[in-house]
Design a protein around this nucleic acid. Sequence first.
DNA 1: CTGTTAGCGCTTTCAC
DNA 2: GTGAAAGCGCTAACAG
Lengths: 337, 337
Amino acid sequence: MAQRRPTLRDVADAAGVHVSLVSRVLRNDPRGFASEATRARILRAAEELGYRADVSARGLRSSKTMTLGLLLPGFSSPVYSAIAHGVEERATRHGYGVVLGTHAAGDPHETISDLVMHGRVDAMLVASGRIEDAALRRLVGRLPRSVVLVNRQVRGIAASVVLRDGDAAASAVAHLVGLGHRSICGVFGPSTLDTMVRRRRGFTRAARALQVEASTLEVADRDSAAGYEGAVRVLRSRRPPTALVAGTFPMGIGVLAAARDEGVAVPAEVSVLSVHNDQSADYLAPRLTTVSLPAESLGAEAVELAMVLTSGGTARRVVVPDEPQLLVRESTAPPPR
Amino acid sequence: MAQRRPTLRDVADAAGVHVSLVSRVLRNDPRGFASEATRARILRAAEELGYRADVSARGLRSSKTMTLGLLLPGFSSPVYSAIAHGVEERATRHGYGVVLGTHAAGDPHETISDLVMHGRVDAMLVASGRIEDAALRRLVGRLPRSVVLVNRQVRGIAASVVLRDGDAAASAVAHLVGLGHRSICGVFGPSTLDTMVRRRRGFTRAARALQVEASTLEVADRDSAAGYEGAVRVLRSRRPPTALVAGTFPMGIGVLAAARDEGVAVPAEVSVLSVHNDQSADYLAPRLTTVSLPAESLGAEAVELAMVLTSGGTARRVVVPDEPQLLVRESTAPPPR
DNA sequence: CTGTTAGCGCTTTCAC
DNA sequence: GTGAAAGCGCTAACAG
């Protein structure tokens, strides 16, 4: 039991050939066209011994670790979980491993440089909104072809993947206007997060295009507490809107709670809607209408872009094309009167 | 820019010594007591060059990858996010990396064996409830000292870390009984998940000890939908209980929604309580009373146990000692009448 | 078609 | 105290 893992050597011996040939055959190296007979023998031997290439050895020799680093600020938001899941799944499909780096409290630089500088990873996927642009640019400057921004764009950094955040917000506005609303307020997280900026822009643009009165409120965070706080302020204002758009799903939960605490009926007196969907939307009171964005694709596409980069391709800005999906539930209705 | 990473060789040259000495000094190898002077020179050179040992090379030579594998079924439940976070944080503190393996759809065996057999990791932390006991035992049989079960115990596998699930459920019962409830129902997920089994046992034991009427219902899953479905059945039964305990937080959300849809007021007509807490508890209607369990510690303790194992220590069953915390919010109250 | 020969960057005996 | 040399398991030139 627990014997040592078989090496290339073991396979070669079993097949009666040289290790290098085994290596080539197993990797489908173009220069390794063995005769059908030996090829079969090698494959069988490898199979029988349960041979798996040692990634350390391979990495050392070829300086490809077959590993991607994923930097997250933590798992505070369901979006991060979705990204992680999408990344892991797609990376696996390409034979890549994923090493996790979070930096809830700590210094993101430390995390990144540890991963990259120890030669642990071939590329870094950075899905943290909290690192400043300048710091990010500095980092990318030192590691030109191996950083992909996820759910974020930064001037001067070419490789990034984002969703149609603006369109999602616009679609929320369109839905409300279709219902008859003429006065809508958007509650968004801090404009240091570029998803929030894009959603706010989409919101404002759509409102202008549809000629409705629209205001936005920026709050300090993008969690339920921030949504709650923002909604309280809006609902207590002199002329409250008839509809509220929350910048994130957790914020939507907060907005709903605020309306309840303020004694404002949803959707009878005010409609509520959030950008981004979540499983639990169906279990809120009332069930929250949302605009769904494919967060898992974000991870998958980021991996694809990383694959392109590591194989010498050129960086691009990717926008995941999936149309935002409006999911009408119970929290939106025509305005009162 | 983007120059190649400095090697041991570079540091040695800069310090005017041999690589082997650098290696020993940098690792604080007991056999490497350099004179204070050279020691200082080496340290300075390494610092200046920004030297970081290449993990592949180190792994190849010492067959220690300084990497832990974390197997999750996905990020379906917030508990998995918490575990991942706890693992990552603690592993980093020990200088270990974490590679993620999920198997939402795919074959968990593939994931595990890929990770382990490619020599990617020194140990595997298995936090999936979905793999069958037998399969797990088989796996551990082949990799004796490198598998740690997280949030799960399996007969025949010594290394595991769990929380005080039973006590958490018991504490929920105690709270309800203290409020005056005499008829309580527990809705738990499938008994193939041993957290569910432990919670159900704790529930039943506490009810018996406190001499109240208690029944349990097993539903097919442990998400909001399952909680909803279970609660509907309970609330429509001939003699519904005055209180419901949900086996997980998502189930608690579902139970709340079911009560609302069935027209049963919470907490006036029925009290609801969940095992496990979550941020969003404060934003539900009504705010959900929960029993909090330290899910992040689960990850941290699993890493500690893995450290023990990889350094030749003996496997043990760890129960994270933290007392479950009852967080009373709005969903529990004395029974009607 | 297949084998030989060098290392990748590091740790680890064993010398001096 | 420090250096020399070997080699972890693999891939990549170059031979044949």
